Simulated scan of single mutants.
Amino acid sequence: MILEAVMLQVKPGMEREYEDAFREASTIISSMKGYISHSLQRCMEVNGKYLLLVNWEQLEDHTIGFRQSAEYQEWRRQLHHFYDPFPTVEHFEKVEF
């Protein structure tokens, strides 16, 4: 399993609109091959800051399957105009010990 982690900064005053748009767009990502689960966390200290966590079966399910799909274009249309600056996406794998 791969964890996608994205720190998001939403433009000031657009937080409520963003959360509504994200709720709607969630159906897009959750329908993708290799998707396991996701959560959106709101920062308690910084207004407009969010953490998106998405679990994927494999890295390629996100980087190729989702990012190169028509569904991603719709996700982008619904959400990307809220971000400033544009977020950096990072992927993590569990450390076994």
Rank of each mutant, 00 (worst) to 15 (best):
I2W: 03
L3T: 14
L3V: 15
A5P: 01
A5H: 07
A5Q: 10
V6F: 04
M7K: 13
M7V: 10
K11Y: 05
P12F: 05
E15V: 07
E15K: 03
R16N: 11
A21M: 10
A21E: 05
F22E: 02
R23Q: 14
S26Y: 00
I28W: 02
I29Y: 00
I29W: 01
S31Q: 09
S31C: 08
S31M: 07
S31D: 09
M32V: 06
M32T: 04
K33S: 13
Y35M: 01
Y35A: 01
Y35D: 02
H38L: 05
Q41F: 06
Q41R: 07
R42F: 09
V46Q: 14
N47K: 14
Y50S: 01
Y50L: 00
L51P: 00
N55E: 15
E57G: 06
Q58F: 10
L59E: 13
L59A: 14
D61E: 08
H62A: 06
F66E: 00
R67L: 04
A70R: 09
E71H: 15
Y72Q: 07
Q73R: 12
Q73I: 05
Q73W: 07
W75Y: 15
R77L: 11
L79A: 08
L79T: 07
L79W: 06
D84R: 13
P85Y: 03
P87Q: 02
V89R: 09
V89L: 12
H91D: 05
F92G: 06
F92E: 10
